[in-house]
Design a protein around this nucleic acid. Structure first.
Length: 512
RNA sequence: GGCGACGUAGCUCAGCCGGUUAGAGCGAGGGAUUCAUAAGCCCUAGGUCGGUGGUUCGAGUCCACCCGUCGCUACCA
């Protein structure tokens, strides 16, 4: 046990539509990081949630003839079901309509108001409900928001409360300079430093006359602007300001995991809010890439195929998780292709790891009656494992999910080569090599076991199955110490297993 | 318009502060095997490293400009 805490959050999701593959990608990545930190013994708190205060949400509810809250209740189920289907192991789930969140928002407003960072002014401009944001006229194309062509922006002129963001410009510049890893990847930090260099403007943080939102504590005629509201979930989820014990334990957050499009809110506005309220800043914000659908080859099933739940149903949550995080570098965009998903699952999982387990156990059963032999003296696979584990850990410590996936899988590749080098089936024909054969088989089983430990954060369900096939306790979550060589006990009796991963197929009736 | 990123084998990409025959994975082709989910293993890609011109003994690797993609940001209107 490290005794260290690790607090990780994802963006909370707008509930104006069901979860899509892009949001699922973020949650899967966060889940792998959270599970990794549990693996290494950290006291992890993994927070997710839904963002329910916005005009978009209100409109979506009205369109269904529901009250906003009734709609949000329905959507909460949708999201929770999706995350369950993907094995997302969040520890807490916050909704911005919950009392604990509302209380935190009010406290935050009260604090920054007391700090002299809030003032009233008139705002006029074009407001795009699609973006939930005011747009500069220059942003509009033919009078419409280029991102939301179907909904015309409305011209608003209202009294708003403003937050003195400009006051924190030099503070943020210094903070960025002193904390080079605050914003990652580097490309996002560069964008934001140049934004800081160009100067910050104060921002409107309230909406007049709206009702679906948190009332401004010192002005009952206004509600807090949804973006300002949403960010506060990260401390509200810790019980701030009431549960100081929980808050003190986990805050500041170790990692805010968000999409690359909302780095500005998290890396400029949010730190300024915290500073104004006298709270410490999170250690790191990571803006991951998007899952692009543009080049999807399976256009005929587009729409249903890219629904994360249906993908999990068709291919299995673990295969989907593996594809999403092992295919492209984290932080870069992923070009989604169902054929690529199937290819990766078949190559790495069925043909690689699954087949290695099958051939290893099968030989154990055939040559040694299924009884795990004693560990050999100086096994080559041991050095391979002991080389891969640190690479895996360094990669995950650096949020390099693909690097960690590759490191774990390198054990599998090496073991498959090792089988060929040793040719156990030939050794089995020579009684003089009986001990050597037993040693090789032990190495293969043990390699599977360790790879299974390392891959548990990526594929929790399948790796539990793997443990079961090796006679381990499938329910007990492994720890990093279990990745040490020699953990498989001598004398255990194994039986020939069924395939761990079945081959996937693109379900094309007219495949050619 | 400003700032920045990227453009390397069919595909996806590695290549840190410049240095012998430019790498990996996947796909594809060939080969030797048989324990295994017809899986695994071995070999094979001769690619103007976007273009041009520079700096240098020597440049995907630095500089300038150009072309093409993209991100952030501004403004004209």
């Amino acid at each position: 046990m490290s005794g260290k805490t690790f607090y990780i959050t994802t963006a909370i999701d707008y509930v104006n539509s069901k979860p899509h593959l892009g949001t699922a990608y973020e949650k899967v990545a966060a889940d792998i990081i959270a599970r990794y930190h549990r693996l290494i013994g950290d006291d992890v708190l993994f927070l997710m949630g839904n963002d329910e205060h916005s005009q978009k949400v209100e409109a979506a509810a009205r369109a269904q003839g529901l009250s906003p809250l009734a709609w949000c209740d329905l959507m909460e189920k949708e999201f929770r079901d999706a995350w369950k289907a993907l094995d997302i192991s969040f520890d807490d789930f916050i909704r911005t309509t919950e009392p604990r969140h509302v209380a935190a928002v009010k406290e935050m407003l009260t604090r920054i108001h007391a700090a002299g960072d809030v003032y009233q002014d008139v705002y006029e401009g074009w407001y795009c409900t699609g973006c939930e944001a005011f747009k500069n006229e220059g942003d509009l194309v033919d009078g419409k928001c280029p991102d939301h062509l179907s909904t015309a922006p409305t011209f608003l002129e209202e009294k708003n409360w403003f937050f003195r963001l400009s006051k924190y410009e030099s503070f943020l510049k210094d903070y960025y300079a002193e904390h080079p890893d605050f914003v990652r990847p580097a490309i996002r930090r560069n964008e934001l430093t140049s934004l800081l260099d160009s100067g910050l403007k104060d921002i409107s943080i309230s909406r007049e006359g709206a009702t679906w939102g948190v009332p401004v504590p010192f002005d009952e005629t206004a509600v807090v602007y949804v973006w300002f509201d949403a960010l506060i979930n990260y401390i509200a989820g810790l019980g701030w300001p009431d549960d100081s014990e929980r808050f003190e334990r986990y805050w500041p957050a170790d990692l805010h995991l968000i999409g690359k499009d909302i780095t500005r809110f998290h890396c400029i506005i949010w730190p300024a809010m915290l500073k104004s309220a006298g709270l410490p800043l999170p250690a790191q914000v990571f803006g991951h890439g998007f899952v692009n659908m543009g080049k999807d080859r399976m256009s005929k099933s587009l729409g249903t195929a890219v629904d994360p739940q249906s993908l999990a149903d068709r291919f299995g949550a673990d295969a989907l998780r593996w594809y999403l995080t092992s295919e492209a570098g984290f932080g870069k965009d992923l070009e989604y292709g169902e054929d690529r998903l199937v290819e990766r699952a078949n190559t790495d999982l069925a043909n690689g790891l699954g087949n290695l387990l099958s051939r290893s156990v099968s030989m154990l059963v055939r040559y040694l009656g299924g009884v795990v032999p004693a560990p050999p003296a100086a096994p080559p696979m041991r050095s391979k494992v002991e080389e891969a584990v640190p690479v895996y850990r360094e990669a995950l410590d650096d949020l390099d999910l693909k690097g960690a996936a590759d490191a774990a899988m390198s054990i599998v590749h090496r073991a498959n080569v090792y089988v060929d080098e040793k040719a156990p089936w030939a050794m089995a024909k020579d009684p003089a090599q009986k001990d050597a054969l037993a040693g090789v088989l032990y190495e293969l089983m043990e390699s599977c076991r360790v790879a299974g430990v390392l891959l548990t954060p990526f594929m929790p369900a399948k790796m539990a199955e793997l443990r079961e096939r090796l006679g381990e306790d499938a329910e007990a979550a492994p720890k990093i110490d279990d990745a040490s060589w020699g953990g498989l006990p001598e004398g255990r009796k194994l039986t020939k297993p069924s395939p761990l991963f079945t081959k996937l197929a693109l379900d094309e009736a007219d495949a050619s």
